[in-house]
């Protein structure tokens, strides 16, 4: 791929980030649905398990993490879908920029519109599920890092299934096994803090996963889009 010397390396990143944020702002209802889903499912847990505070507190961190994972999974499906339908994905593929950078811009926009709001809402859910007070800061930190990993890995799955008509279900099948390390260390961060143990090590591992995903996932997604978008 030839990069013209006059073009800035990050021009694709910033342009696609701004575009996707603008689109998200104009479709506010659509963007809000993962967060509404996140809050609604949390009502099912006391109904399905038990309303007792002591028992809820035990499962709170894990449940919030699983719901965040599902909410991300629901929304990551649409990462490339509308671009594929209206043809702007083709335009992205033929731009002279390095393809991973526009993709990273799109993923960043996705995280800013789903992962970040989910993270910010999570203390409210923690309160509803009587999470012990030591768990709030670790929950915020781990969700902020973890949902970024989920968006990045999800982008690879979304790229692999973009041209399939029923890609959503397949996408979750492909991506769910890859999400398991994230959920292990995400919940561990919170449970360490609740148990009064130093919770920075699992958070650091989440950070390492995030660093690896930032480096590798946009490239894998770019390779996948080159294959799938033309078929």
């Amino acid at each position: 791929m030839a990069i013209q010397g006059t073009r800035k390396m990050d021009s694709g990143f910033a342009a696609w980030l701004r575009r996707d944020l603008l689109l998200a702002y104009r479709r506010r209802g659509e963007v809000a649905s993962p967060i509404v889903f996140f809050i609604m499912v949390s009502t099912l847990i006391p109904l399905g398990l038990t309303p007792e505070a002591a028992q809820l507190a035990k499962v709170a961190a894990g449940m919030i993490w699983i719901m965040a994972l599902l909410a991300t999974l629901l929304s990551v499906d649409g990462l490339f879908a509308s671009d594929y339908q209206d043809g702007s994905l083709e335009q992205m593929l033929i731009t002279p920029q390095l393809l991973p950078l526009p993709i990273l811009g799109k993923v960043t926009a996705h995280w800013l519109t789903t992962g970040l709001p989910l993270t910010l809402v999570s203390p409210l859910l923690g309160l509803m599920m009587s999470l012990p007070s030591a768990g709030y800061l670790p929950l915020l930190c781990s969700l902020a890092l973890g949902t970024a990993c989920l968006s990045l890995v999800g982008a690879v799955g979304a790229a692999l299934t973009v041209s399939l008509r029923k890609g959503g279900l397949l996408l979750s099948l492909l991506v769910m096994p890859l999400y398991m390390p994230v959920i292990i260390f995400g919940t561990a961060t919170v449970s360490y803090a609740v148990d009064g143990v130093n919770w920075l090590p699992p958070l650091a591992i989440l950070g390492a996963m995030f660093a690896a995903s930032v480096a590798l996932c946009p490239m894998a997604a770019a390779g996948a889009l080159r294959v799938t978008a033309s078929n």
Partner: peptide
């Protein structure tokens, strides 16, 4: 599942190769 999802042999092969590498 990805292998069977695509009608085009070429797309199925390449997509599942990328998934296998990931």
């Amino acid at each position: 599942a990805l292998q069977y999802a695509y009608h085009s042999v070429d797309a199925a092969s390449k997509a599942s190769a990328i998934l296998a590498l990931v």
